[in-house]
Simulated assay, not measured.
Amino acid sequence: MSNAQKFPFIKALNNAIQTGAEDRAQISGHSLPCHVVAVDGQIVTVQFDMLPDGVQYPQVTIPVATFPYVRPPIQVGDKGVTLAIEVSLRGVSGLGTGIADRAITMSMAPLFFTPISNVNWSKEDPNKIVLYGPDGAILKTEDAASSITVEPGKITESADAIYLNAKDIYLGGGTIHLNGPIVQDAAQMTSTTASFIGPMDVTNDVVAGGVSLIGHPHDVKNVQSGGSTVTSEAPTATE
């Protein structure tokens, strides 16, 4: 009896197709839970959180699902999942070169990392977006010409001009430091009257309308002898 008679051709073909499918499944990308073990910018190395079931799950270095405009401060220990597409991500992530094609791709090449939420996270206002990092946050333009940096106990704003527009602007709770010239833009003013409630200590001279508070002269008219009281004129500007 021939081998063909012992093992029918159709059954052999079916076995070959099944074996090929199983082999392809073994090398295809897997969507699995994992945690971060190393961070390099927005490229992470993850360890799969899977029980040992006869399959080897090596650590893998993969890109994060994000944009250049929003870069989450991913930390070692952060939990998430790997997601897989059908072709290699090496070219678009910079971890390799070339353009993807439909050739068979090894299981680690089409993976990327995405964080996943956890019930142990801090409770925040569900109607507000929450942005923070372990040491703060940075909001900036691409060229860094304007930026806001939030750090523990300090907020730094940097720009050519900072505008605060509101009906009332309150600065309170501490000492106000004004380390530069203070001007009023007449064209922008709806009212040029400023009111202060003292006490106020001024270390150096104050000049108002060309008149020095410290060194201004007074014209005196109708001088009389003896103990007479003479009222002087208003102070005049000094040259």
Rank of each mutant, 00 (worst) to 15 (best):
Q75E: 14
M108K: 07
V36F: 10
P126E: 08
I148M: 12
A109L: 13
K79T: 11
T229G: 09
T19E: 10
G98N: 09
K154W: 05
N15C: 10
T66F: 06
V207F: 09
L164I: 12
K123Y: 11
T61Q: 11
V44G: 04
V92N: 04
S158T: 15
R102P: 00
S232F: 11
N118S: 14
L89Q: 03
S212H: 07
S117G: 14
I17C: 00
I10T: 07
A166E: 12
V92P: 05
T236Y: 01
K221Q: 13
E86M: 09
I176R: 04
S195P: 01
I43D: 05
R71Y: 03
P58N: 06
A194W: 12
P58E: 02
N3S: 12
I138L: 15
I99F: 11
I43H: 04
F112P: 07
I27M: 11
Y57F: 12
Q26M: 14
P152D: 03
G226E: 09
N14A: 10
V150K: 04
A166V: 02
V60C: 02
V44C: 06
I162A: 07
L139I: 15
D125G: 01
P73K: 00
T192P: 01
N120T: 10
P152C: 05
I182D: 04
T149A: 13
E157Y: 14
G226S: 05
L83P: 02
T45W: 10
S158A: 12
A234W: 02
T193H: 07
G80E: 08
A194L: 13
P152R: 01
D168C: 02
V55Y: 10
G80P: 04
K140V: 05
V92R: 11
F9T: 06
E86P: 00
T203N: 06
K154T: 11
Q188I: 03
D49F: 08
C34D: 06
P63K: 00
A38Y: 12
F196H: 10
R90K: 15
I43M: 06
F9R: 08
Q59P: 03
E233V: 03
M106Y: 14
V207T: 14
H216D: 12
T156Y: 00
E22L: 13
H216R: 09
V70C: 06
D143A: 14
V202I: 13
H30D: 09
Q59Y: 00
V76K: 14
M189S: 15
G94K: 01
I138E: 11
I99A: 10
T231S: 12
Q188T: 09
E233W: 02
F196P: 00
P33R: 09
I214K: 11
R71M: 13
P152G: 05
V150Y: 08
P33T: 06
V223C: 00
Q5E: 14
P110D: 03
M108V: 09
